[in-house]
Design a protein around this nucleic acid. Structure first.
Lengths: 242, 242
DNA sequence: CGAGAGTTTTCATCTATACATTATTGGTCG
DNA sequence: CGACCAATAATGTATAGATGAAAACTCTCG
């Protein structure tokens, strides 16, 4: 795979323009706040139509690299926040990627009556839910304990799903589209119950991931996952988001 | 905030089309795998040109909501992975958002000779770096200890920066554009040094964030941040990325 | 000299069209 | 009956032109 001519790879014109401008920004040649040429100028520069330039610039603007204003021209955005694409892979894939055998066991599966949670100032009503507590193993040693609520109003199909062999996470991913999710990641000490399930001593550090998923206004599921701190970590890779 | 007329807000046509299709997918009306109308059909449906439809659909495809294939048509993507935009806010902002007073103190600032790290199979050379160890406080109680290497080859301006009052993180954000970053998040037990710095007991759970940032092939900085587990957590919000 | 109105520049969007690309489909021929 | 090939239908890319909107500039008038 020896790339003989590694220059300007993207086949399409707007992708090439985009890549070139992006490179000039990321290399530091164009600093934050700098104004870059008008569409008409670039149109001459690349000898193409304005629509093509526009497509490239719109794409850069969509990723937040540049700021476009009518009349005021286009300028390089100042790097604001550390933001990017985080991918949280499946636990199963993660375990198997490390060469271990994945095991899953549901230890509790019951219906929970409707309840209210208090989020900040306003109470939020949540309907009847199916509650599944499961333990995930890597090579017979427990790695993760997961408490999951699935709200049956929002996900009616979940009432019939069989979670004895298939974890609810993947099932939900495959069956239910979601629009928003929120994660809270924290380090906690293992409480007695957790310690017993994960076969560690009380007080050992664990990684807590609380995940809440919505579709529109409706809460689909809430999951609390507690990982053995010494057996798991999350990695997030950031890039200029394609 | 009673939205009186909540219909199709986006002003521009392609944004309206996009929003409409997106809504139909997210509401569950269109399920994963379903095929949606061809561009020509939608062009008649919205009585606009195909380019406009194309723009809307291309945008949806870019966010991964739909899959487009030539000849085979467009279909709703099956929700693959939990991926989205993660925002890691500034520590300072985070602390001040909770009403606490932010404090910063550099406890070590020295030059480190070039070194090699071993990443997987290949060794990677890293040039001379400036090493800054700092402690961040919330209301006079230490919350975070940060070990940061800044590689002077890649960031020459860092040699003269004054990190006694300004933390290196924000300084870097404001001065250096980056192209890629990788984070590793884990729960660890406080070692003796960490425990002493954070004024907690040895073994208490802490949240570890290792962050490595590149520009192109060049490593800009490596940061190891250890947060008091009981005083800090990360939150990530996911959405259909605009 | 200053404020406001008008003009110009520049980006934003939409339309219509043309051609390229590619996977499916179906037909033909061995 | 199966393998290959051509027609076809869908998306992908690019062009040119028209229209609109908003901000900055300029000019005039008080």
């Amino acid at each position: 795979m020896h790339d003989h001519a590694p220059d300007t790879r993207p086949a399409t014109l707007h992708a090439r323009i985009r890549a070139e401008v992006e490179a000039r920004i990321l290399s530091g040649e164009l600093k934050p706040g700098d104004r870059l040429p008008t569409e008409t100028e670039m149109m001459a520069r690349y000898s193409c139509s304005r629509m093509t330039v526009n497509k490239a610039m719109a794409s850069l603007a969509a990723t937040g690299l540049i700021i476009r204003n009518r009349r005021a021209g286009t300028s390089v955005a100042r790097p604001k926040m550390h933001a990017g694409v985080l991918t949280i892979p499946d636990i199963r894939a993660n375990i198997e990627a490390r060469g271990a055998r994945y095991g899953y066991q549901a230890v509790l599966d019951e219906l929970r009556p409707p309840c209210c949670v208090h989020l900040g100032s306003e109470g939020h009503h949540l309907g009847q839910s199916r509650f599944v507590r499961s333990i995930h193993h890597a090579d017979d040693s427990p790695v993760l304990i997961e408490d999951r609520h699935i709200f049956l109003d929002a996900v009616p199909g979940a009432a019939e799903a069989d979670f004895r062999t298939e974890p609810p996470g993947p099932w939900l991913l495959g069956h239910v589209p979601w629009t928003e999710a929120e994660h809270r990641i924290a380090a906690i000490a293992a409480d007695p119950l957790t310690a017993r399930c994960l076969e560690i001593s009380i007080g050992m550090p664990c990684l807590l991931v609380e995940r809440r998923t919505w579709r529109g206004e409706e809460t689909l599921t809430i999951a609390k996952q507690v990982f053995r701190g010494d057996a798991f970590d999350l990695t997030a890779r950031f890039g200029p988001s394609s």
